[in-house]
Design a binder for these strands. Structure first.
Lengths: 190, 190
DNA sequence: GTCTATAATTCGATAGAC
DNA sequence: GTCTATCGAATTATAGAC
């Protein structure tokens, strides 16, 4: 009686998961064009044709691998004077624990579809979260916030500018949090 | 006597220039991988083999096309309280008048050589300029400055986040200049 | 479900005629 | 100096055996 009859045994979902894990790594490290289905399949220890069977095409695989949730906290619960610090810490955590965002960013530089996905994440996840905390000028504040957070990620994780790589978390938060704080709650002049 | 005998006539340098112009456009719009020699040659109205003849290889062509000078002003001449404004304006001007930087940034997302070039530009042009204006913590301040300026360029010119595209120059300068000002001259906390 | 074999493109690069 | 023709390699994707 070890056969699950109700929800179906989920036979060989391990293969799907292995493909997805390898795809995320390759896309993150090399971007869409340079990450080949052959290399991804080799990483996952399976045959390249299986990738096609499970995900239909390279684009389909990327779409599945680029699913991403920023897991932004409810900003209404955060004390206003700690908004910058909480957000910078959260983004550093997410960037360092999940390479999906790096894959998306690397790919979006040359792939219109991936750029559109980033715009969607911005519209569906970032902008609504900012709306819970900022008083007015919502799209603008969210955009400025994104410009600094993506610039941080770009220089630290993608371009690897030495000073940005070497700076530790505490210093990074100390310097960047006030910027985020001002973009969300401050005025242009101050 | 229309023949220049001394410095050599420079016959057909127009072709070289046309190739370079087309290459910059293609690399800027599509990045290194997707920009093909065939497409560049078609844009320049010449045969693909001429590209190889003049620049040896695709990498050689990119190296020639990615030569870039930020033309940073002497920051010692700028009143300290106007540093942020002057720098943000200057970078917006350079990004909008020369697509070479966009080509480099798009390519650097997946191409290690292009990323190395950006690090070189940072070390040879940005860091020394910042050193003329900032008091201490030089590499760190230069890195933070780069994170905001590249984040601005990334979201406005590459990813095209709607709020960042729609914001006009004056608003952009008003919001971002204080950030740059603090990174160069301020302290982490304020 | 998994793999072999291969079709159909596309690309960078080369050789050589004119 | 410019172009035609083509090579060799690599890629995505498909068809079908086991």
């Amino acid at each position: 009686m070890t056969e699950p009859t109700a929800t179906r045994p989920r036979r060989s979902d391990a293969t799907r998961a292995a493909i997805l894990r390898a795809a995320r790594e390759r896309f993150a490290a090399e971007g869409y064009d340079r990450a080949t289905i052959r290399a991804i399949a080799a990483d996952a220890r399976i045959d390249p044709s299986m990738v096609m069977r499970y995900y239909g095409s390279k684009e389909g695989l990327f779409a599945a691998a680029a699913e991403f949730d920023l897991r932004l906290p409810d900003l209404a619960d955060v004390p206003p004077n700690q908004l910058g610090e909480v957000l910078v810490r959260h983004f550093l955590d997410r960037w360092e624990s999940d390479e999906t965002m790096a894959a998306l960013l690397r790919t979006a530089a040359t792939n219109p579809g991936a750029a559109e996905r980033i715009r969607a994440i911005f519209a569906e996840q970032v902008a609504p979260a900012v709306a819970q905390a900022a008083p007015a000028d919502l799209p603008r504040r969210a955009g400025l916030f994104a410009s600094q957070m993506l610039g941080l990620a770009l220089t630290r994780y993608v371009l690897r500018l030495p000073p940005m790589v070497e700076m530790d978390r505490a210093d990074l938060v100390a310097w960047v949090a006030p910027t985020v704080q001002r973009y969300l709650l401050g005025t242009p002049g101050a």
